[in-house]
């Protein structure tokens, strides 16, 4: 297999130099477009659901049209086993994770940066303490910890998402700590201190904003993917959103009995929605990582 390398004429290369987006790797561009499409679909669907702009009433049963296929009787994605419109239910299902997911992200980022700055900037004993805390959090499988909390408190999805956020914080903290250590190696922080900048300005403006924002953006994207995974898993297990309110997780669960009989669609449609959405967030995170932090090789 021959690999081709060809040199562009100099005018074209100067053109690339001028426009940053022309430097993006083809694969990253693909990921980026896909990810942005998914994110905007999710956001639009969230607002459609919030303002109740759905093609059908998601909880209205239509026993004459149970499990009809795609496009039948005006149901764009068909209906489930009770004749409820799948598309409407899937759009409404986004309500189950969207705001809670954002909460998880906010907590993971703020708490994670806090820990990261503590251990990276101050180091020493504080670093040891933060590392201990991170290891402690990592000791629990996330779902087990959530089940423990569920058993103890029967909490709301928002409280569960606080736990998801807290358990994501060590990842963010480690990345920020590494970045700060890298900056320390380059004497960036010493020189800012020597210049007489106040500590809060160094931390918030020069470390977090100028040097860590790409890390935070990437982690936010990946965090949303994980929040979706958690919410759907919990709803599937019966600890999240309860029927008849739809969530992608409980839709898969509810459709699973019919799946065994060969009626794939009511269960598969939300499952595919989960897959494409999580894939979108992951690929977006990856593409952003390559674009903002530089692609390896």
């Amino acid at each position: 297999m021959y690999t081709e390398f060809s040199q562009l004429p100099i005018e074209k290369r100067q053109d690339i130099e001028k426009h940053w987006w022309k430097k993006i790797h083809r694969m990253d561009l693909l990921y980026l477009c896909y990810g942005i499409t998914i994110v905007s679909l999710v956001v639009i669907s969230y607002f459609l659901g919030a303002f109740n702009l759905l093609p059908f009433d998601p909880e209205e049963m239509d026993l004459d049209n149970m499990m009809v296929g795609i496009g039948a009787e005006g149901h764009i994605l068909g209906t489930d086993f009770m004749g409820r419109d799948l598309l409407s239910r899937m759009i409404l299902g986004i309500q189950a994770y969207f705001l809670p997911g954002l909460l998880a992200i906010v907590i993971a980022l703020s708490f994670g940066s806090f820990l990261g700055v503590l251990s990276g900037f101050y180091g020493g004993r504080i670093d040891t303490g933060v590392t201990y805390f991170n290891n402690l959090v990592d000791s629990f499988p996330r779902l087990v910890l959530i089940l423990l909390v569920v058993a103890a408190f029967k909490p709301d999805i928002y409280y569960i998402m606080i736990i998801v956020g807290l358990t994501n914080a060590p990842v963010v903290a480690a990345l920020i700590k590494n970045k700060i250590q890298f900056l320390k190696q380059k004497n960036f922080i010493e020189s800012s201190i020597a210049m007489g900048l106040p500590t809060h300005l160094i931390i918030f403006k020069h470390i977090l904003w100028y040097n860590c924002r790409s890390i935070l953006i990437i982690q936010a994207t990946l965090g949303m993917g994980e929040a979706i995974l958690m919410e759907t898993s919990l709803s599937y297990l019966g600890f999240g959103v309860q029927e008849p309110t739809p969530s992608w997780g409980n839709m898969v669960q509810a459709g699973s009995n019919y799946l065994m009989q060969g009626n794939f669609w009511p269960s598969t449609a939300p499952a595919l929605a989960i897959m494409f959405t999580i894939l979108g967030f992951y690929l977006l995170g990856d593409a952003l990582n390559h674009i903002l932090e530089g692609r390896k090789s």
Partner: peptide
């Protein structure tokens, strides 16, 4: 893709 597949659906 296989990493994004929901486990419970895959099980079914």
């Amino acid at each position: 893709v296989i990493s994004a597949l929901p486990l419970f659906w895959l099980a079914y």
